Simulated assay, not measured.
Amino acid sequence: MAVTGIISALIVGLVVGVLGRLVVPGRQNIPIWLTIVIGIIAALIGTAIATVLGVASTRGIDWIELIIQIALAAVGVALAAGQYGRRRP
C-alpha cells in the first residue's frame, strides 16, 4: 500500500469515526485514536457489506455505503465507550 493510500485510509477513518461518534447520544470518553481505528474498521467492513449487497459501485456518491459505514462506526463507538468507560476508575 502506498503512502497516499495509508493517508487516505486515515482520513476516511477519521471522518467515518467522527460521524459515527456524532450519531451516538451522550458523551463518549474514548480517545481520538480509538475513534479513528473504529472508523477505519467500520469503513472496511461497510465497504465489504455494500459490495455484497451490490450497492458499492454506483455513479456519484455511494450514500448507502456511507450510511452502512457510519452505522457500523456508531455501533463500534458505543461498544468501545462502554468497554473503555468500565476500565477507568
Score class of each variant (00 low, 15 high):
Arg88Trp: 01
Met1Trp: 11
Ile30His: 01
Leu53Ala: 11
Ile38Cys: 09
Gln83Met: 12
Ile70Ala: 07
Ala56Thr: 01
Trp33Ser: 15
Arg87Ser: 05
Pro89Leu: 11
Ile45Gln: 01
Thr51Lys: 15
Gly60His: 09
Ala2Phe: 13
Leu66Gly: 13
Arg21Gly: 09
Ala81Pro: 00
Ile6Gly: 05
Met1Cys: 05
Asp62Ala: 15
Ser8Ala: 13
Tyr84Phe: 14
Leu14Trp: 15
Leu44Gly: 10
Leu72Tyr: 05
Arg88Gly: 01
Ala43Glu: 10
Arg27Asp: 15
Thr4Ile: 12
Leu14His: 07
Val15Lys: 03
Val37Lys: 06
Gly60Gln: 09
Thr58Tyr: 06
Ile30Lys: 03
Ile40Ser: 04
Thr47Gly: 15
Leu22Gln: 15
Ser57Gly: 05
Val77Gly: 01
Gly60Pro: 03
Thr51Asn: 13
Thr35Ala: 07
Val15Ile: 14
Ala73Ser: 13
Ile41Phe: 12
Gly13Trp: 06
Met1Val: 11
Arg88Glu: 06
Val3Lys: 12
Ile64Ala: 12
Val55Tyr: 00
Ile49Ser: 04
Ile6Gln: 01
Ala71Gly: 13
Ile45Phe: 11
Val23Gly: 04
Thr4Ser: 14
Val18Phe: 12
Ile45Ala: 15
Arg59Asn: 07
Pro31Asp: 15
Pro31Glu: 14
Leu19Thr: 10
Val12Pro: 02
Val52Trp: 12
Arg59Val: 11
Leu44Arg: 07
Pro25Tyr: 04
Ile67Asn: 02
Ala9Met: 06
Ile41Trp: 05
Thr47Asp: 13
Ile36Lys: 06
Thr47Lys: 09
Gly82Ser: 04
Ala80Gly: 04
Ile30Thr: 08
Thr58Arg: 02
Gly5Glu: 03
Val24Asn: 03
Val16Ala: 08
Leu19Phe: 15
Leu53Ile: 06
Gly39Ser: 09
Ile36Phe: 07
Leu66Phe: 10
Ile45Gly: 05
Pro31Cys: 01
Ile49Val: 15
Gly76Pro: 03
Gly76Ala: 04
Ile61Arg: 10
Leu14Cys: 11
Ile40Phe: 08
Arg59Lys: 13
Ile38Thr: 13
Val23Cys: 03
Met1Asp: 11
Gly39Tyr: 03
Ala81Cys: 07
Gly5Trp: 00
Val52Met: 10
Ile68Met: 02
Ala2Met: 11
Gln83Lys: 05
Gly5Val: 02
Ala50Asn: 08
Ile30Cys: 03
Ile67Tyr: 02
Trp33Ile: 10
Arg27His: 09
Gln28Asp: 10
Val37Gly: 13
Ile67Arg: 03
Val12Lys: 10
Gly85Asp: 10
Ala74Trp: 05
Leu66His: 10
Ile30Pro: 06
Leu72Ile: 11
Ala80Val: 10
Gly13Met: 08
Leu72Gln: 05
Ile6Val: 14
Ala71Tyr: 07
Leu34Ser: 09
Arg59Gln: 12
Arg21Lys: 12
Gly13Ile: 07
Pro25Ile: 07
Ala81Gly: 15
Arg88Tyr: 01
Glu65Tyr: 02
Leu10Tyr: 11
Ile41Ala: 13
Val55Asn: 08
Gly46Val: 08
Ile68Trp: 02
Ile7Leu: 14
Ala78Ile: 03
Leu19Trp: 13
Ile64Glu: 09
Val77Asn: 12
Ile11Phe: 12
